[in-house]
């Protein structure tokens, strides 16, 4: 009997420090919200199984440090991502303006096969905060950014509140669908990843003493 392979989808959450990346993930995975701010150190993931299109998938959601000083080892974990979530804070214009650079950084570092149509999704968090503190004429600015920085492609945009659990579930459902599509696309295109390296015959396979003997 063969086991049906369970699909693992890798999702990366990016965005400026303090926009609520960890909170979004915690709200989605554990239905928890912490009022106190904790910086994220390095990168860490949580997994959650959900059903998308009648298919059970495991989402491996990577939460990242927005502050560069807590990301000293680089971003090797971008590799193999199936979807990238770009977060901003609806009360912080700078975080909105930085979306493009986060996207570019992701594409450069992740080395994805199809940078043109890699699935991104934009989340504006903290909509629970009173109207007056929000970025003025937000939708216009957001439009500008998606038109200029994202080549006018229509990326899904969600406005959420991790605190009050508004729209979080819905956003991640879309994320999962998009990630699944990307994963299936990779299967079709690349098939087995190692095909790319078939010609690289490893002659050092056994006993080449490069590592220490421990």
């Amino acid at each position: 009997m063969t086991l049906r392979k369970k699909t693992l989808l890798k999702v990366i959450i990016l965005g400026d420090s303090g926009v609520g990346k960890t909170s979004l993930m915690q709200q989605f995975v554990n239905n928890k919200f912490l009022h106190q701010y904790k910086a994220t150190i390095g990168a860490d993931f949580l997994t959650k199984e959900i059903t998308v299109d009648n298919k059970v998938v495991t989402l491996q959601i990577w939460d990242t440090a927005g502050q560069e000083r807590f990301q000293s080892l680089g971003v090797a974990f971008y590799r193999g991502a199936d979807c990238c979530v770009l977060c901003y804070d609806v009360t912080n214009e700078k975080s909105l303006n930085n979306l493009t650079s986060w996207k570019d950084e992701f594409l450069v570092q992740s080395n994805v096969a199809n940078p043109q149509d890699f699935p991104f999704i934009i989340i504006g968090n903290k909509i629970d905060i009173e109207e007056s503190r929000k970025i003025p004429s937000l939708s216009k600015k957001l439009n500008n950014i998606t038109n200029q920085g994202f080549g006018g492609l229509n990326y899904p945009v969600f406005e959420t509140s991790a605190k009050d659990s508004i729209n979080v579930e819905a956003a991640f459902e879309v994320i999962a669908k998009m990630a699944l599509q990307q994963e299936e696309l990779n299967e079709v295109n690349g098939g087995d990843v190692s095909d790319d390296y078939n010609d690289a015959i490893n002659i050092h396979l056994e006993g080449n003493g490069s590592g220490c003997a421990c």
């Binding site: 990843v193 190692s194 790319d196 078939n198 490893n202 050092h204 396979l205």
Partner: peptide, 12 residues
């Protein structure tokens, strides 16, 4: 070469 090896072996 490490990357190649890992890719190859993990494929196998």
């Amino acid at each position: 070469s490490s990357i190649n090896t890992i890719n190859q072996q993990s494929g196998l």
